[in-house]
């Protein structure tokens, strides 16, 4: 895990396109907030692998959002229940329910539906916010962070040696 965080820091500090990091983070949200073993999670996995997004960001994001998912569980249940019970959508859900392949996705589960709707709604806003954050970080914060006492202390730690080793290997590569 430390090496993954080290990789993430390296990516943040590198020239990597912010969109690659942001998209990986958003796909991690999609996979992390919804129940992991659900069939629909093959889609973010497929996108992460086929699109040139940052894998370290995806893995860190996945761990982060899986933790958040447990906390938001009651919220997802309420959202899912609202969506699945919405009068206007009953025909759609009934059709889906009678389709064996869609039924396999367990779309009629309140937590799955709630978390999916939540992550889809926040997908683009999170993408844009993360993009903006990375740019601002690189322009204004990175220099200060490098000079800060905490960073100096960190550089003396085991964590930093891992970070450095990864960086060197990467550099050789």
């Amino acid at each position: 895990m430390l090496s993954i965080i080290a990789k993430l820091l390296r990516v943040l500090n590198s020239e990597t396109n912010p969109a690659q990091i942001s998209l990986a983070f958003c796909l991690a949200m999609l996979a992390g907030l919804t129940p992991f073993s659900s069939l629909h999670n093959l889609m973010p996995l497929f996108l992460v692998l086929i699109l040139r997004v940052n894998l370290s960001s995806f893995l860190v994001g996945l761990a982060f959002f899986s933790g958040v998912a447990y906390l938001l569980d009651p919220v997802f249940h309420q959202i899912g229940l609202g969506v699945l019970k919405a009068e206007a959508l009953q025909n759609l859900w009934t059709q889906c329910y009678n389709n064996p392949f869609i039924r396999l996705t367990r779309f009629n589960n309140t937590i799955l539906m709630g978390s999916l709707v939540f992550s889809l709604l926040f997908f683009i806003p999170l993408f844009m916010a993360t993009n903006l954050f990375i740019r601002k970080y690189r322009d204004h914060i990175l220099g200060l962070v490098q000079k800060s006492r905490i960073m100096k202390a960190l550089k003396a730690s085991k964590f930093y040696s891992i970070y450095n080793r990864v960086d060197q290997i990467r550099g050789k590569g």
């Binding site: 019970k85 009953q90 859900w93 009678n98 589960n109 309140t110």
Partner: peptide, 9 residues
């Protein structure tokens, strides 16, 4: 963590 499975017609 498990939610409810809503049954439709």
């Amino acid at each position: 963590g498990k939610g409810l499975n809503i049954a439709f017609k």
